[in-house]
């Protein structure tokens, strides 16, 4: 039921968001049409950051009470977080090339995002090399927690470098924020659709892991009963 709701909700939300992005939101005066990629870029960033914090939360729960469900959630959010973070790192340069004139620059936010991507890509690599072992789940949980503890420090570290990234929603005078209410509404709708989509993917991934565990358990039961018969 929840799965269907999330699936259809995100699908419908995406269609509405697409319509708003191209039909409702006005063209940005200085950047032109390329600014519209922003309505995909920012929601993906939010989904990615939500995912990384969810990994840490689920990891902490898993280390605390050993719940298999929390471990599955941590892995699912890590995969979805890395996916959305990858999308952020793809859509960003597409926008940056015409606006900044370069695909990439070592701005604090860009540096922060690519470092987080690397931390959680390493997390997935640890899972892949480690296999389905109980110990590997604990190691991954430790990495998930350490990764988020590192976020404020990395945030501070990259600020020691120079920055040119626009502040998106700002009340400060002279910030390049979204002035037009239609632009803001488009951003909100696109964000809700993207977050629903992320939750849906996580649900699917957790269910897949449950089915995998079920198959393993069934195989063990079968081997045990064959052993008993022989």
């Amino acid at each position: 039921m929840l799965d269907a709701l999330l699936g259809w909700g995100s699908g419908a939300g995406m269609l509405v968001a697409l319509w708003m992005i191209f039909m409702v939101a006005p063209t940005e005066a200085q950047m032109g049409n390329v600014q519209r990629i922003f309505y995909v870029h920012v929601p993906c960033a939010w989904a990615a950051f939500l995912g990384f914090f969810a990994v840490a939360g689920a990891s902490a729960v898993f280390l605390w009470n050993g719940s298999r469900r929390a471990d599955r959630l941590a892995q699912a959010w890590a995969e979805v977080g890395v996916l959305f973070c990858t999308l952020v790192l793809i859509t960003g340069p597409i926008w940056a090339r015409p606006i900044w004139g370069v695909w990439w620059t070592w701005d604090p936010r860009l540096t922060m995002t690519v470092i987080l991507w690397a931390i959680y890509a390493g997390y997935l690599l640890l899972r892949a090399f480690g296999g389905p072992d109980e110990a590997v789940a604990r190691w991954a949980a430790v990495l998930g927690i350490v990764g988020v503890l590192d976020v404020p420090v990395i945030h501070y570290a990259v600020r020691l470098l120079q920055g040119i990234h626009p502040a998106v929603i700002t009340t400060r005078e002279g910030g390049s924020g979204l002035v037009d209410p239609d632009m803001r509404h488009t951003l909100y709708v696109a964000s809700i659709a993207m977050l629903l989509f992320a939750f849906w993917l996580v649900r699917l991934r957790v269910r897949l892991a449950e089915v995998e565990d079920g198959v393993v358990a069934a195989r063990h039961a079968l081997e045990a009963s064959e052993g008993a018969a022989a």
């Binding site: 470092i115 931390i119 390493g122 690599l125 990495l143 990395i154 501070y156 570290a157």
Partner: peptide
């Protein structure tokens, strides 16, 4: 190195 290098950026 893959796990540590990004964590050690600060």
């Amino acid at each position: 190195p893959v796990l540590l290098l990004p964590l050690l950026v600060p």
